[in-house]
Amino acid sequence: MLLPTRTVEKVWGRDSLPAPFIAPEGVRVGEIWFEPQPELPELLVKYLFTSEKLSVQCHPDAEQAKAAGLGRTGKEECWLVVAAEEGATLGVGFNEEIDTETMRAAALDGSIEHLLTWHRVQAGDYFYIPAGTVHAIGPGCSIIEVQQNSDITFRLYDYGRPRELHLDQGISVARGTPHPDTLRGSIPTSGHATLVDGPQFRLDLVDGVADDGLLYSYASKLLVVPLSGEVLVAGEVVAPGQCAQAPDLASVTFAPEGKCLVTAPTV
C-alpha cells in the first residue's frame, strides 16, 4: 500500500529538489512526509531538504517523554544522505565529553554549534541517532529520515531565530558525549547492509533480491523505500521517491538491479 505524502514548506527548505521530486513554483520544500497508517503507526519516513542550518536539538526516549507528560513515544532516528552539495555537513554528538553546565552555557552563548562534531557528507552516508544525541543538519543536504513517529523536539540553539527554545528539557535528556563511530558509515556499493539494529526499529539496505535472513527479520509489517529501481508490494508498483507499507517481506518483489530501504519497529 502506497503511503500518502505531505509536503511541508519551510523557510530553510529548497525550491530546487533532487530527482524525482519537483518543488511547486514559489514553494521552499523542507520536508516530504509519508503519512503513517493505523496498521503501522510506530514509524515515520520523510525526506528533508535544507538550504540553511537547522537548530541544534535532541529528542527524549520513551521513559523521558512519559515522565515529562509528552506521550509514550520517544524519538530515535536514522539519516541516509541521498544527495549533498559540496561541503555539506551534519553535526552529530560532541567533539569531546562535556558536562551539563558546559552544555547549558554553550547553548546560551551559541558556542554549542562549535562543540558539535561536523561530518562532511556525501550521498550514501548514514547516521543512526539514538534519543538524547545532540545533533544539527547543515545546508545543502537531501536526506531520508527514518524515525519513531514522534514530534518531540527540544531545541537547544537556533542561531538567533525567533523560535521557542527548550533548554531545560533538552539539557535534561541530552548526551554530552561524542557520537560512536559504530553508529555511522556509508552504504556499500554492492550487497545488503544493516544500518540500524536498535531497540526501537531496524533499518536495512536491500541490494537486489532479499536473502533468507532478512525474510526472517521482516516477518511482519514493514515500510519499503526504493532508492533505485521499482519494487512491487503486493503487486503494486513502488518507485524511488515513494514509500509503501507491506504486510511482510515475502510480499515484496525487489528489482534485481535496484536498491531499497526496508524498516520495521522492533518493539
Rank of each mutant, 00 (worst) to 15 (best):
M1V: 15
P4C: 08
P4R: 15
T7L: 12
V8K: 03
G13C: 11
G13R: 08
R14A: 14
D15P: 04
D15T: 15
L17F: 04
G26F: 02
F34T: 03
F34R: 00
Q37H: 04
L44S: 09
K46S: 09
K46P: 01
T50A: 02
T50I: 01
E52D: 14
K53W: 07
V56D: 01
V56N: 00
H59A: 14
E63M: 13
Q64R: 03
K66C: 10
A68T: 05
L70S: 01
L70H: 02
G71M: 09
V82H: 04
A83T: 00
E96A: 12
E96I: 06
M103L: 15
A106I: 14
L108F: 05
V121E: 06
A123V: 06
D125N: 13
F127D: 11
G138T: 03
G138Q: 09
I144S: 01
V146Q: 10
T153K: 01
T153S: 06
T153I: 13
D158E: 07
Y159V: 11
Y159L: 06
R161F: 09
E164D: 15
G170R: 00
S172N: 04
P180V: 10
P180R: 13
G185T: 10
S186K: 15
P188Y: 12
S190D: 09
V196R: 06
G198V: 04
R202S: 13
L205T: 10
V206M: 04
A210H: 08
D211L: 09
D211N: 15
L215Y: 08
Y218A: 03
Y218V: 05
A219W: 08
A219L: 08
K221H: 12
A234S: 13
A234E: 14
V237W: 13
V238G: 13
G241I: 00
Q242S: 11
C243Y: 11
D248C: 10
S251V: 10
T253H: 10
T253Q: 11
F254K: 00
F254I: 12
P256M: 15
T266L: 03
V267L: 13
